[in-house]
């Protein structure tokens, strides 16, 4: 175990003292800060008139300020944190000739990859927890609302899910750093996959739905057809980790959300009726809705890391 501890310690030191961490941290902190400031100002105005808000504190994270809310921002740019901290994990060691030196010491070979992954996850966790705490404290001051136990629990779950989400991208970029000898290639491959999974899968989902269950907008499709169309679209878009993550966190952060579906078939009268009786879900109920999403996120992270681990263990190291 001393091998793992040694690699972990060294990698953590490297991560935390690197310029890229400082730049990334500054960027993410700045954007989150501005976003939640907007949300807070907006919220404070509403709090005076809106009496129905039961969880004002959580709205700090879910209310879109100017362009996007804090959770939307993390869904979009969280992967970048993972990619930037992992894309050169193994191939940099290889190209500077330090990998062979480390594994020629009396350590198990997996100490290298485990140590790097754990150090990356720790960095992400530290960064994210810090930002979340700062925003919470800031919201406390601006909005003047104290979070309840349930809100704190929801925030905590949000934190854990977010760390897994970013860890997935970290594992993926470490995988590319094992597969590709060149650091530029592995960075590019990770970013390409990020863009594909985050932006193009949702486009592809629409195309797939249109092809499989075409809806004729002129000749009134049956409600069943419309539903099937939406089902296909949702199923395909779940291939995107971003969609998984957005659905999961939106439901966790917003107790008013009763489903991860964005599409609800409802007439205006029914909507009015239901709005009168809107009650928040309990934490357990919210969790139940997004449990599959959260498990899927954890699963893809674990699978991705397992693949990197296996390839790394079987690869021959000469430099």
């Amino acid at each position: 175990m001393h091998g793992l501890a040694a690699v972990y310690k060294k990698e953590l030191q490297d991560q935390l003292s690197s310029y890229r961490f400082v730049i990334l941290f500054a960027l993410i902190a700045m954007v989150s800060f501005i976003t939640s400031y907007m949300a807070a100002v907006h919220l404070r105005e509403n709090l005076e008139t809106l009496s129905a808000t039961r969880f004002p504190f959580l709205m700090l994270f879910s209310t879109p300020g100017v362009m996007f809310s804090m959770i939307q921002f993390v869904a979009f740019f969280g992967p970048l944190i993972g990619i930037v901290s992992g894309f050169d994990a193994i191939n940099r060691e290889r190209s500077q000739g330090t990998l062979i030196k480390v594994i020629a010491q009396p350590v198990y070979r997996d100490a290298v990859i485990n140590g790097k992954f754990l150090a990356g996850v720790t960095t992400v966790a530290l960064m994210f927890t810090a930002i979340l705490l700062v925003i919470s404290g800031f919201g406390l001051a601006v909005v003047g609302v104290v979070p309840g136990v349930e809100e704190i629990l929801r925030l905590f779950i949000y934190l854990v899910v977010s760390i897994f989400y970013i860890a997935f991208w970290l594992a993926l970029s470490i995988l590319f750093s094992i597969l590709f000898k060149s650091m530029a290639t592995s960075a590019l491959a990770s970013v390409a996959l990020w863009i594909f999974l985050s932006f193009f899968v949702s486009l592809g989902a629409e195309v797939a739905a249109d092809m499989l269950v075409p809806i004729d907008r002129k000749n009134e499709s049956t409600p069943e057809e419309v539903l099937r169309h939406v089902h296909v679209q949702e199923a395909v878009s779940l291939f995107s980790p971003m969609v998984l993550y957005s659905n999961a966190t939106a439901t966790i952060i917003d107790p008013m959300r009763k489903t991860t579906r964005s599409f609800v078939l409802m007439g205006p009268l029914e909507e009015l009726l239901s709005a009168r009786f809107r009650n928040p879900l309990t934490l357990g109920q919210s969790l139940l809705i997004v449990l599959p999403h959260m498990l899927a996120l954890v699963a893809i992270t674990v699978i991705c890391f397992a693949i990197s681990y296996t390839i790394f263990m079987l690869q021959e190291v000469r430099t």
């Binding site: 001393h2 040694a6 060294k10 500077q96 000739g97 030196k101 010491q105 009396p106 350590v107 430099t319």
Partner: peptide, 30 residues
Amino acid sequence: KRHVGYLPENVGFYGDMDAVQSLEYVADLN
């Protein structure tokens, strides 16, 4: 590997560490 030292052909170092830090890391790994 506990008893055998191996010096590769192009031995590499972490450029931002000094000599003492490099040796400390190796000691830690051992």
